[in-house]
Amino acid sequence: MIKMFTDAATKGNPGPTGLGILIIRDGQQEQLTSQLPCASNHQGEFAAAQFGFDYLVKHHFNNEPILFYTDSRLLSDSIGKAYSKHYQEQLSQLLNSIDQLGTVVTQWVPESQNHGAHHLANQALHQLERH
């Protein structure tokens, strides 16, 4: 079983955005980061999830159940309903990636339970700000 946590950190809204992805499999952690030069926080949350699911697809984790955790209610609700009023294009891309994997269970968690991904997103944001 794979656990994946994602988060985005944005300075300004919109503004520079750091993405953090924490993947836990067999007790091992994979820490991924990326950046967007300018995005809203919601766009960042979708982008972080997309980055994480693309990584899982690319590394052929399609036969393992995946527990996906996000502290974005908008993201978790959108995935659950397969609908987003303002982010349908990003959601469609995300659902396409999710469909390439096996069982994926999405769960909203409070920010206090998403420290790993939150820390990685902030690290990515700070790196972006220094350049």
Results as ranks from 00 to 15, higher is better:
Ala124Asn: 09
Glu129Pro: 03
Glu64Ala: 12
Leu56Ala: 05
Gln88Lys: 13
Ala48Met: 11
Ile2Cys: 08
Ile66Pro: 04
Arg130Glu: 15
Leu125Met: 03
Gln50Gly: 08
Val104Met: 00
His42Glu: 06
Pro16Thr: 12
Ala9Gly: 07
Phe51Lys: 07
Phe46Leu: 01
Met4Ser: 13
Ile24Met: 09
Tyr55Val: 10
Ser112Asn: 12
Asn96Ala: 15
Gln107Trp: 03
Val105Gln: 14
Leu74Arg: 01
Thr17Trp: 02
Glu89Arg: 10
Ser76Glu: 08
Ile21Asn: 06
Lys58Pro: 00
Lys58Val: 04
Glu129Trp: 08
Gln90Leu: 15
Phe68Ser: 03
Gly15Ile: 09
Glu111Trp: 05
Ser84Gln: 08
His118Gln: 11
Gln123Trp: 04
Gly15Leu: 07
Tyr69Arg: 12
His115Trp: 04
Gln31Leu: 14
His118Asn: 12
Phe46Ile: 03
Gly44Phe: 07
Gly80Arg: 06
Gln93Met: 05
Ala39Gln: 04
Leu67Arg: 15
Gly116Trp: 02
Phe68Glu: 01
Gln90Glu: 14
Gln123Met: 08
His126Gln: 14
Gln123Lys: 15
Gln113Pro: 00
Pro16Ala: 11
Asn41Met: 02
Leu75Val: 04
Pro37Gly: 12
Gln28Thr: 09
Thr17Ile: 04
Gly12Met: 11
Leu91Cys: 05
Pro16Asp: 02
Gln31Cys: 11
Gln127Cys: 09
Ile21Val: 15
Ala47Tyr: 00
Ser78Gln: 10
Lys11Gly: 13
Ala121Gln: 01
Tyr69Lys: 12
Ile2Asp: 13
Ser34Tyr: 05
Asp26Gln: 10
Thr70Pro: 06
Phe61Ile: 02
Ser34Val: 08
Glu129Cys: 06
Leu22Gly: 06
Ile24Glu: 14
His131Gly: 11
His115Tyr: 09
Gln100Glu: 14
Tyr83Arg: 12
His126Asn: 15
Gly15Trp: 01
Ser112Phe: 00
Leu74Val: 08
Asp71Ser: 04
Ile98Gly: 04
Gly18Phe: 06
Arg25Ile: 07
Glu89Cys: 07
Gly80Cys: 02
Glu45Tyr: 01
Lys3Met: 14
Gly18Thr: 01
Met1His: 10
Thr106Glu: 12
Val105Leu: 04
Ser76Met: 03
Ala47Leu: 13
His118Tyr: 05
Ser84Met: 03
Gly44Ile: 01
Thr10Ser: 15
Ser92Asn: 13
Ala48Phe: 09
Leu101Asn: 08
Phe61Tyr: 15
Ala8Leu: 04
His131Thr: 11
Asn63Ala: 14
Thr10Pro: 06
Leu56Ser: 05
His42Ile: 08
Lys81Pro: 11
Thr103Ala: 13
Asn96Val: 07
Ser76Ala: 15
Gly116Cys: 11
